[in-house]
Amino acid sequence: MRQAKWGRRAVMGGLVAGLAMLAPPLAAQSISGGYRAEGRNPDGSAYRGTVTIREEGGMVYVSWRVGNQSYNGTGTRNGDIIWVDWGSNYPVVYVRMPSGELHGTWGNGTALERLIP
């Protein structure tokens, strides 16, 4: 009897897991809007700036303003992961956090950036 009970639990657990995989993904929350940027350059120096993000037609458009310099990039989004080509050899890669912040890395992982809504 003990084996049969354990076997049913395993089968039910497998069915629940399988059904969860078939469920459609939840709609991702929009990341469009203005952000305050805080980051660290590859050399370790800190910077601050502003960022505007616009999502349109499956594309992500990003404009950074840091000091007297402006940068623009375009990218894509897969759920909470955003990849942005901004003209460097390596993209900026952000992860959308539950708080709405975007935490990212650039410079092939040698630099960090946090975008705060």
Rank of each mutant, 00 (worst) to 15 (best):
A20I: 13
V93S: 01
S99M: 06
I81D: 10
I31M: 02
Q69V: 12
S30E: 03
I82K: 08
T76Q: 10
I81G: 10
S45G: 13
G100I: 00
T76H: 13
G39E: 01
Y90T: 11
A37D: 06
V95C: 12
E55T: 04
A10Y: 05
Y94V: 01
R54I: 04
D43W: 06
L19A: 11
L15R: 04
Q69E: 15
G18M: 10
A28R: 12
Y35Q: 05
G34R: 10
G73K: 06
G13T: 06
W83A: 10
S32R: 02
N68D: 15
G79L: 03
A27H: 01
N89C: 08
W83M: 13
W6V: 15
Y35P: 02
V60W: 09
T105Y: 14
R9P: 07
S70Y: 14
V11T: 11
M1E: 02
S30P: 05
N68S: 15
V66E: 01
Q29Y: 07
Y71M: 07
R48D: 11
G7R: 10
G7A: 13
M59Y: 15
V66Q: 03
L112N: 10
A37V: 05
E38L: 10
A28I: 02
A37L: 08
T110N: 06
S63P: 01
A111W: 00
R96H: 00
A10P: 04
I31L: 00
N68Y: 15
L115E: 05
A20T: 09
M21S: 14
G39L: 00
I116G: 01
S99Y: 03
V92W: 08
Y94P: 04
I116A: 06
V16T: 08
G109F: 01
E56I: 06
S99Q: 03
D85Y: 09
T52P: 00
A4Q: 12
L22I: 05
D85E: 13
L26C: 09
T105I: 13
I81F: 13
V11M: 13
A46W: 08
V51A: 03
L19N: 01
T76V: 09
T105H: 14
E38K: 09
L15Y: 05
N72W: 04
G49F: 06
L115Y: 05
L112G: 14
V60F: 11
T105Q: 15
Q69Y: 13
T52S: 14
T110L: 03
T74P: 08
E55G: 02
G100W: 00
A4I: 14
T52H: 08
M59V: 13
A28K: 07
N89D: 12
G49D: 00
G104I: 00
N68C: 14
M1P: 00
Y61S: 14
I82Q: 08
R8M: 09
N68F: 15
G87Y: 01
P98E: 07
R40H: 05
V16A: 10
V92C: 02
A20W: 12
V95Q: 09
L22K: 07
Y61W: 11
P91A: 04
D43P: 14
G67D: 07
A10M: 01
G73P: 10
E55H: 08
Y61N: 12
E38P: 00
